[in-house]
């Protein structure tokens, strides 16, 4: 056996563990993403990241154990580091986590007028830490995202109860025009549940080389249909994305 290979040979199982961990994390991440494809995109993304992170930690533990380190000590070190990070960043992490949940469960969006903790204003920004309000006297107020979950938030925008905003992300290889056309056809079947004056509208929010972020806006006829319409719209979006096999358009 050549000297170089002889030196590397003992570490080969570690390399195999790393490769298996990466492949496993990717597969399980994709599986979780697939299972949650009809739920809210931020929730599906968070679940996928959590799954991938857990598998990476388990893989790393195996690899370190193979190298002769005591797993109990490794776990203690990880736990201590984790606890320290949680204590040090509890405010930041709380806000960060709250952002995920408020996106899904608190009914307001940028442009809406809301009241929270006695402050009222128009939402002009929602970042991972805070929601920024512009008050009537032109003051900018940052409300920590945690407050959006802990406090009572009142959306005072006209007809706010009617509006359902469904985030949609589509890959750049997909024909957006065909997707929109199919989606409008599909959603027209829900017309009896939607306000006839406000047909569905798809708005482009941002675009990268890989994907386009859109928001589908629906206006309800009855407030109690909010959950069911949101779920139905997500389902229809997912079905069209799954079935999309349309080639790119031919244009100049």
């Amino acid at each position: 056996m050549p000297p170089l290979l002889e030196a590397v040979w003992p570490y080969l199982p570690v390399a195999i563990i790393v490769v298996v961990t990466v492949v496993l994390a990717w597969l399980v991440g994709a599986l979780v993403g697939g299972l949650l494809r009809r739920s809210s995109p931020p929730l599906a993304r968070a679940a996928r990241q959590l799954t991938v992170g857990a598998i990476a930690v388990i893989g790393a533990t195996f690899a370190l154990q193979y190298l002769g380190l005591n797993p109990a000590i490794i776990f203690v070190i990880i736990a201590l580091l984790g606890a320290t990070a949680l204590i040090a960043l509890r405010g930041v992490l709380g806000n960060y986590g709250a952002k995920y949940f408020s996106d899904i469960y608190v009914p307001f969006k940028i442009g809406d007028s809301i009241e929270v903790r006695g402050i009222s204003g128009k939402v002009i920004e929602s970042n991972p830490m805070t929601t920024v309000l512009l008050t009537d006297n032109d003051h900018l107020v940052s409300v920590p995202n945690e407050s959006m979950l802990r406090e009572i938030v009142v959306n005072t925008s006209p007809q706010a109860w009617k509006e359902v905003a469904v985030p949609v992300t589509i890959g750049s290889s997909l024909d957006l025009a065909a997707f929109e056309s199919d989606l409008l056809k599909s959603l027209a079947k829900l017309r009896s549940r939607l306000d006839p004056r406000f047909p569905p509208v798809l708005t482009t929010k941002s675009r990268t080389a890989q994907s386009t972020d859109l928001v589908l806006t629906l206006m309800l006829r009855r407030p109690e249909d909010r959950d069911s319409i949101t779920a139905e719209a997500n389902k229809r979006v997912a079905e069209i994305l799954e079935g999309a096999r349309a080639p790119r358009r031919t244009t100049g």
Partner: peptide, 13 residues
């Protein structure tokens, strides 16, 4: 809400 409107939206998109 018509199917024709989805084609109108298609062309504009």
């Amino acid at each position: 809400w018509t199917e024709a409107f989805s084609e109108y939206a298609y062309y504009n998109r």
